[in-house]
Design a protein around this nucleic acid. Structure first.
Lengths: 94, 94
DNA sequence: CCTTATCTATCGGTTATCCGATACTTGGAA
DNA sequence: TTCCAAGTATCGGATAACCGATAGATAAGG
């Protein structure tokens, strides 16, 4: 997996399968701006080539079994690094 | 601020001021491997030049007032992107 | 049909990120 | 004082991550 963008895409697709445009909107909600097509589609292509997501004829992307495993692993790593993320929340609230 | 490395450094220094070597150890705990000196020290230099951290004569790095503000802002951004990080934890546990 | 708008996708180039190799500095032991 | 180890720091280069511009595909409306 490439970086946080790929991680986020897997995470979003775990919740619901969706099209590229819908993924872009979801990313906009989180990051505040839409990723450029030149960012999003290469990332989707990579994930597809690695077998983590699949794409049906209607261009709707779905998390595969392999993708779920990858996501679980990535979540674990994420949590090891940011195990105290809940404290960060407090930090930014005051 | 550059990326997640700088973010992590500020976060670590918020909890406790420490030397470069100690920061490296703390990063190792989280990420599983020590950052190379060529990664850590340029990041520290950047943060220093931006006024987010200061370095006393004993080479101990401390978060500045400005750094605290920056960290708060970064925590906010982080939480907007990963607002559902607690669900990730569940995901990686099963 | 033909046009238009939206979505999908690719390409080249730019910048960010990071590492290994190297060198300087410092403090303590011999 | 001399030597050595550990910490600090810099440099050049490799790779990852990302964007803007561009173009093809598809579907709806005139």
């Amino acid at each position: 997996m490439k970086g946080f963008l790929s991680f986020l895409i897997l995470w979003i697709l775990k919740k619901e399968k969706m099209s590229g445009a819908e993924i872009a909107k979801e990313l906009e909600k989180r990051k505040g701006h839409k990723p450029s097509p030149g960012t999003l589609y290469p990332a989707l292509k990579d994930l597809r080539e690695q077998g983590f997501i699949s794409c049906d004829k209607d261009k709707v992307y779905t998390l595969t079994k392999s993708g779920e495993k990858e996501l679980e692993s990535a979540c674990k790593t994420f949590h090891e690094i940011f195990y105290d993320a809940h404290e960060m929340h407090k930090c930014c609230k005051k």
